[in-house]
């Protein structure tokens, strides 16, 4: 009798809590008026996800040669580029790279000095206003955590599954889509009465569709340095956008690999420990009617 009642109420509470946690946070995210963003097959998704070192190195090249002329990355230190789990350049490479940059330093003679590995990536503009002035009034956002500052609103029931698959790659998907979402002219799919302001470009995925950034990448615009594995990849917009999106995800979440590896051990431990605790509790309660 009581058992059935308990079950009834148990179900209600489980359903209520699961639904509350689930339903609530998701529909708030994401851009308005953007087209559906396709999921990419990211190497860093899932429990066992890890970054592809060669991809990150290529992505860094795209970032450095193309993006970095307008976008900063003021939370990324040069030293991060040689840390394990990332692009893993050698320390010598990073040292040489940093030395190519001038870093503002009030204590140095002349106010600038050559960069060292400990320095952070210098911003291309002195301040936001200078950045706006140089970019037709649009502010190129800093890249440091941009991959996590963008999201995709998944339809039901996909977002429910996200809680169980831990899918957190919406930002990378969005960046990839955005880079591929340009049109030379306003397409027929544009909202009715859409008019493109001067100096803006039409993009399928950008909220409001009018983006201030000209298409930054095109097939062949970057010549890849061959990776350490000697594998060559096509020099296409698709490849560039995937690589740079992966790099940006790493930049936003540099310790992702270590975090997931630790997490796997922690979960295994907890399941084992919960099993032991359950056995102990049962044994203890075996003589008690309850």
């Amino acid at each position: 009798m009581t058992g059935a009642k308990t079950m009834f109420k148990t179900k209600i509470i489980i359903a209520a809590v699961a639904a509350m946690v689930g339903l609530a946070s998701l529909p708030a995210q994401g851009a308005e008026g953007g087209a559906h963003v396709e999921r990419q097959n990211w190497s860093f998704a899932g429990i066992f996800g890890t970054y592809d070192q060669n991809q990150l190195q290529r992505g860094f090249q795209v970032f450095r040669e193309v993006c970095a002329s307008c976008h900063g990355a003021n939370l990324m230190a040069f030293r991060n580029l040689s840390e394990p789990g990332g692009p893993s350049f050698s320390e010598e490479q990073v040292k040489a790279l940093a030395a190519e940059f001038e870093i503002a330093d009030a204590t140095a003679e002349g106010g600038v000095r050559a960069g060292v590995a400990a320095d952070r990536w210098p911003s291309p503009f002195a301040n936001d206003q200078e950045a706006r002035d140089a970019n037709g009034g649009s502010l190129p956002p800093d890249f440091s955590v941009l991959a996590k500052a963008r999201g995709v609103t998944d339809p039901f029931p996909t977002w429910v599954f996200n809680y169980f698959t831990g899918y957190q790659e919406g930002g990378a998907d969005y960046i990839h889509a955005l880079l591929n979402g340009y049109h030379e002219e306003v397409p027929e799919t544009a909202p009715e009465g859409f008019e493109l302001a001067e100096g803006k470009y039409y993009n399928d995925y950008f909220p409001g569709h009018a983006i201030g950034m000209a298409p930054p990448l095109a097939d062949g615009s970057v010549t890849y340095t061959p990776g350490e594995d000697g594998v060559t990849v096509p020099e296409t917009l698709e490849q560039y956008s995937t690589d740079v999106a992966a790099f940006m995800m790493w930049m936003a979440e540099p310790h992702l690999v270590a975090r997931k590896q630790t997490g796997f051990v922690v979960l295994l431990f907890l399941v084992l420990f919960a099993g032991l605790m359950y056995a102990t509790k049962r044994k203890l309660w075996a003589g008690i009617e309850h």
Partner: peptide, 19 residues
Amino acid sequence: FAWFVFFAPDILGHPDNYI
């Protein structure tokens, strides 16, 4: 708890808070 901490630490938050 650990699942969210290690595999989806940001899923309960909002992307906007990374701006």
